[in-house]
Design a binder for these strands. Structure first.
Lengths: 356, 356
DNA sequence: GTGAAAGCGCTAACAA
DNA sequence: TTGTTAGCGCTTTCAC
């Protein structure tokens, strides 16, 4: 029952297997008559070529592999929480694979492994994916890039921020988004703005911080070192940093956390100190996490179009796989972001008082 | 550069390719000496067998395919939101694939397609996965099950609630969880409890409703038909149902929404009517969505161990693939749930007043 | 424009 | 315990 092969199709259509193969792969120099016969046989039999056989015989595997950081995955798994970035990335990649007849494989990469290079090489030779999507922080791991380059693998780096000239990239301007967010706070009248840095594991953390600092300078606002704390992108770290920030005297009138989870933590810290947001303290985040629209108050944040990024990346990968000449495919693709102003950001208390 | 094959390893170890194959597959009847030689050659060369070649020649593909509803994916993609269930499921599956040397493939399934059977058969013959993980609502689609059975494919249905005797299942007791949640409200003193049914697309919706109704009856509480509304698991539908529910006179003192997104909607509807939760109205959900701990008030809900379910499913699949005799592997695996009482559920206003 | 034959890199029978 | 041989179902030369 299991196997209708190219031979069955060829026999039914009364042609050679090579002709079936030609039709399947949309090659030129195939007469309409032949194409019709073959297509009919394919439909009758419900035939679909074996991925393994194609991969073994030909140059394409019709596989796109998404590389995901293993540590992160374990962390999420342990904490019982999902990974919003992962699912959004996949949605985009799947949408694009869907029509092109490609398949999406998700692979864990242990960036800290001492055998990383070897593992990457092994993965490539075992899977032979037509393209790879590198998610952060894997997209900034030079060992991974070296291994892929060594094998001539085609990849797109998502949100990459290091070694910008290597490979293809799809990214958004984190620095500028953070700049805009800071300006948003400044325009509301905030002068005393605290900042919580993200995990150093992500290159984006640095950029967000730079965007913040640049904006502060341009607006003549002082960046107080004691108001710039380092978190690790978790709620807990946001809670701790928030508590420290709000315990100081004087304390900032606004806090910009490098991601939403930390912003939620700051919000919580504010509540514990008897502060109400945004009346006493404005809090803004970054990511537009699933909870951002349900938090109290709803969180002002930056939305990164992750699905669109993955779509673009997958489209590039498939184009290269099909064109054979990858020269025509763009090397860098920038996507836009959206600053979503919700309830958690408002004018500072002083300004409010003055306005009364 | 790309291809170190089994021949290279055999040559280097001074043995036949069959011996290499034996060592690779951990077959018995291999001397330690031979195993050592082969392993050394494998390590030296950084060899890893080609998935395609293995799949083509042998019975195993080392592929686990996760079947995901295409409509849902498109919806999430359109709305720019992630899919928490998907990512949690994958975390679990990946954790389990990881050590066993299996790979996870994510496939979209269009349950509404007129050619669904054909598409499923084609997918199977093209991919030949060693096992399939069916996520809801695909896990309850009989056309899919028929196609898989016809091909003798091995699958595990996640959260399946229909045709319980078919195939293997990993699930949690939705009915009982909903029962418990209803009891939770009853114990707080609520007698007037509204309910929002989930999307009929999911079999779990029916079970949650049944759990609610059974609990109400057992506690001598009336289920008022006008307080039982049908939503579709979206925030918007929760908002609408909530508005309708709260506009009535008398109105319930508690609302049990079949999932968290709808519960968030009810919370929002309460705010718009000038009601404060949980003082005026208790609201509870189901799922423990990412926003549940950040909402205002934090949401009382039921946590489903999705990652653990996927882990168990993957473990079953791999065990079957390796044992060849699938008889020893359990057919049904039930996982526990956790009722998480947060801030959104509290005694009803009357009770509070009486207590004063 | 079409077909015949030769592999791709493995596993599976079957010998030895 | 180990090796030999024959495919698995395709794509790729290379003829015609």
């Amino acid at each position: 029952m299991s196997g209708v092969t190219i031979y069955d199709v060829a026999a039914r259509a009364g042609v050679s297997i090579k002709s079936v193969s030609r039709v399947l792969n949309g090659e030129r120099n195939v007469s309409e008559a032949l194409r019709g016969k073959v297509q009919a046989a394919v439909d009758d039999l419900g035939y679909r070529p074996s991925l393994s056989a194609r991969g073994l015989a030909g140059a394409s595997s019709y596989l796109i592999a998404a590389l995901v950081d293993a540590d992160l995955t374990v962390e999420h798994w342990r904490s019982g929480r999902g990974n919003d970035y992962l699912s959004r990335m996949e949605l985009g990649a799947l949408m694009e694979c869907r029509h092109a007849g490609y398949h999406l494989l998700v692979e864990l990469v242990d960036v800290a492994s001492p055998n990383l290079e070897r593992e990457m090489l092994a993965m490539i030779s075992s899977l032979r994916p037509d393209g790879l999507i590198l998610t952060p922080p894997v997209s900034d791991c030079s060992v991974v890039l070296d291994a892929l380059d060594q094998r001539g693998a085609v990849y797109v780096r998502l949100g990459a921020e290091a070694e910008l000239s290597r490979g293809r990239r799809v990214y958004m301007d984190d620095r500028r988004a953070a700049y805009d967010m800071t300006v948003h706070l400044a325009r509301l009248g905030h002068k005393d703005i605290g900042f919580i840095i993200g995990s150093p594991r992500y290159a984006a953390s640095r950029l967000r911080r730079e965007g913040f600092e640049t904006a502060m300078q341009r607006h003549g606002l002082a960046v107080r070192p004691e108001w710039v704390l380092e978190g690790d992108f978790t709620f807990q770290s946001g809670l701790e940093c928030g508590a420290r920030l709000l315990a100081r005297e004087p304390r900032p009138t606004a806090v910009f956390a490098s991601n939403d989870d930390m912003a939620f933590g700051v919000l919580q810290a504010a509540v514990r100190q008897g502060l109400s947001a945004p009346a006493d303290l404005s809090v803004v985040g970054f990511d537009d996490a699933p909870g951002a629209q349900f938090s109290a108050p709803q969180l002002t944040t930056v939305r990164q179009p992750v699905a669109e990024m993955a779509e673009a990346a997958t489209r590039m990968l498939i184009a290269i796989a099909q064109n054979k000449s990858d020269a025509s495919v763009e090397r860098v693709h920038q996507v836009g972001y959206t600053l979503i102003a919700r309830e958690s950001s408002a004018p500072p208390p002083a300004r409010r008082a003055a306005a009364n």
